[in-house]
């Protein structure tokens, strides 16, 4: 395997992805990601000199519209989906 994923890299990706992996999951993730990156490395065979990266197939520009509210007040229905709510607001655990 050409791509060897270090413990530090998996830790770092875990922080970016907001995932907490068990030791077993970490070992598996190192193997899986290494294998995938080896596979993706094939792309280096393609000569892309001077090629513009294409994020969208159509030449899309920003689509503007008037900022007018069209939906109703769904606050109660939306809050019913929340794991925690109080006084019309979402409840989250302490932040420090």
């Amino acid at each position: 395997m050409a791509n060897v994923i270090s413990d530090e890299t998996i830790e770092y990706v875990g922080i970016l992805a907001k995932l907490e992996l068990s030791e077993e999951e970490k070992e598996q993730a190192k193997k899986d990601m290494g294998k995938m990156l080896d596979y993706i490395d094939q792309l280096s065979e393609v000569d892309t000199e001077g090629v513009e990266p294409m994020s969208h197939v159509f030449d899309l520009n920003n689509c503007f519209r008037e900022d007018i509210v069209t939906n109703g007040d769904d606050r109660e229905a939306m809050l019913r989906n929340a794991p925690g709510q109080k006084d019309g607001m979402f409840v989250v655990p302490r932040t420090f």
Partner: peptide, 17 residues
């Protein structure tokens, strides 16, 4: 785990949650 869906129980502070 804030606006909808599953939230881990007793996860402590926000980032851990």
């Amino acid at each position: 785990g804030v606006k909808y869906g599953y939230r881990a129980e007793d996860a402590g502070e926000l980032h851990r949650m």
